[in-house]
Nucleic acid binder design. Structure first.
Length: 271
DNA sequence: CCCGATTCCTGTAGGC
DNA sequence: TGCCTACAGGAATCGG
């Protein structure tokens, strides 16, 4: 499922095809996504040149002279390059035909993804207004996490998955970074020390960077902009490994639900 | 403000 | 083999 590394992988794969190209046609076959596709998306976007392809949190931003197309991949979405004229398959909901002879194709079986049109030069949208810092930016560190956690009684796992605290950390990378930092996911956020938050911030950055370097994590269906899967899944320490032995100490990994999400951790390595 | 529960959706896996 | 159910999850929204 696309978290920050998968969205960044998609951005990097698409950028060489998208940046500088002109959108010659927009085909919307399914308007019912997480939010309805804007009815005037096609007339707004058609004819525009893509100036840059950016990312904020898990959103892709296709910046044009007239406005910006904002895309969220939800949990099963992908945006990839296919040759123009490729026959659409099931769940291929939106196509952007480019003048370079390729098509940017949005596919999303579960339709948790969304497309938004941001009018004009401003890259602002209500969904972007209350997002926390990028985890790979200088503004994100252990001291920041420690300050934000003051008085928080929810679990540290829910805390780092909260987009108002830090963006891009979903269930996979939350589980992995908490394991690497030696912190039990169910611990109260307000009861984690500053020193341990410094370790956690470092592990979040490290695991995200490593996953990006591997092209993201493909569990079932994630593919990047070039249609290829990511290879980070083979490096997962705990996610999806409930009941199996810890790769560090051999203890049986425990699985339980925390913040409505399945959470795997090592009772021996995480406290 | 903070937090937990609910909600959207479909493919897949497990049970019988 | 086939049907049924449970489960997966990003994140907005709502109720307490």
């Amino acid at each position: 499922m696309p978290e920050l590394p998968e969205v960044e992988t998609t951005r990097r794969g698409l950028a060489p095809h998208a940046e500088g190209a002109r959108v010659v046609a927009v085909h919307v076959r399914e308007f019912r996504l997480r939010w309805p596709v804007p009815p005037d998306l096609a007339p707004n976007l058609a004819g525009q040149r893509i100036l840059s392809l950016k990312r904020r949190a898990k959103y892709l931003l296709l910046v044009t002279g007239a406005g910006t197309l904002m895309v969220h991949l939800g949990m099963s979405g992908s945006l990839r390059v296919v040759p123009s004229g490729t026959v659409p398959a099931r769940h291929d909901h939106v196509d952007l035909e480019l003048d370079s002879g390729v098509c940017l194709r949005f596919n999303d079986p579960r339709r948790f993804g969304s497309l938004h049109w941001l009018e004009g030069a401003q890259c602002r949208h209500p969904l972007l207004d209350h997002l926390g810092p990028e985890p790979l930016s200088p503004g994100f560190d252990g001291d920041y996490l420690y300050r934000m956690a003051r008085g928080r009684r929810s679990t540290v796992k829910a805390f780092i998955m909260d987009g108002a605290v830090v963006v891009g950390v979903g269930n996979i990378y939350a589980a992995e970074s908490l394991f690497l930092a030696g912190i039990a996911p169910h611990r109260q956020a307000g009861r984690v020390s500053a020193a341990r938050y410094r370790r956690l911030a470092a592990e979040i950055r490290r695991v995200l960077a490593a996953a990006i370097a591997q092209g993201g994590t493909t569990l079932r269906d994630f593919v990047g902009g070039d249609g290829k899967p990511g290879y980070f899944a083979q490096q997962l320490w705990v996610y999806g490994r409930g009941g199996q032995p810890c790769k560090v100490c051999g203890a049986r990994l425990r699985e339980r639900r925390i913040a409505q999400r399945s959470s795997v951790y090592c009772v021996a390595c995480q406290h």
